[in-house]
Simulated assay, not measured.
Amino acid sequence: MDDDALRGPLARAVTDALGGGLLDVRRLRGGSKKGVLRLELAGGESVIAYLWSAAEDHWPQADRDAAERDPLGHASGLDLFEAAHRRLDSLGVRTPRLLHADRSHRRLPADLALVEDLPRGSLELMLDQEPERAEPVVDRLAGTLAALHADTAPAMGKVGAVERLGQGGREGGQRGCEHVVLERALADLAEAAGREPRLAAVRPRLEELLRERAAAVRPRSRFRLIHGELGPDHVLVDREDRPALIDIEGLMYFDVEWEHVFLRIRFHERHDRLATVELDPARLALYRPAMRLSLVAGPLRLLDGAFPGDREAMRAIAEHNLRRLLDEIAPLF
Rank of each mutant, 00 (worst) to 15 (best):
Q129I: 01
L189Y: 05
A193Q: 07
H100K: 13
A153D: 10
V159S: 06
D139A: 10
R97N: 08
V180P: 00
K158E: 01
A155Q: 10
R184V: 00
L189S: 06
H179D: 15
S122G: 09
H179T: 09
L114K: 15
L127A: 01
G173W: 11
D102C: 11
S104E: 14
D188R: 01
E135P: 04
D188Q: 00
E130K: 06
R103L: 06
L186P: 04
L141C: 03
P119S: 14
R133D: 10
L182V: 02
D139H: 07
G160S: 08
A110G: 05
E183D: 14
E132K: 09
H149L: 02
A147C: 02
E183P: 00
M126R: 13
L112Y: 10
L182E: 07
V115R: 12
V159Y: 13
R164D: 13
D128C: 09
H100V: 10
T144W: 03
P109R: 15
R103S: 14
S122E: 10
Q129L: 12
R184P: 01
L141M: 05
D151M: 10
G173K: 08
H105E: 15
L141S: 10
G172N: 05
D111F: 13
M126G: 08
V180R: 06
A150K: 09
G121N: 04
Q174I: 01
D139K: 05
A155R: 13
A153K: 10
D117V: 04
A113T: 09
R170C: 00
L145Y: 02
E132H: 07
G166V: 12
A161R: 12
A142N: 08
A192V: 00
P154E: 12
L98V: 15
E178C: 00
L141A: 08
D128Y: 11
A161G: 00
R97P: 02
A110N: 08
D139I: 00
P96R: 13
P154D: 08
P154H: 08
H100C: 13
A134P: 03
P96W: 10
V115G: 11
L118G: 08
E130W: 06
R107C: 10
V115T: 01
L114N: 14
D117H: 12
A155N: 07
H100W: 15
P96G: 15
G168F: 09
E116Q: 15
A146C: 02
H105P: 13
H149F: 06
G169L: 03
L182N: 06
K158H: 05
A110R: 09
L145M: 03
A192E: 09
L99M: 14
G172W: 10
R133Y: 05
P109N: 14
A187R: 12
Q167C: 01
R195I: 03
H179N: 08
L127K: 07
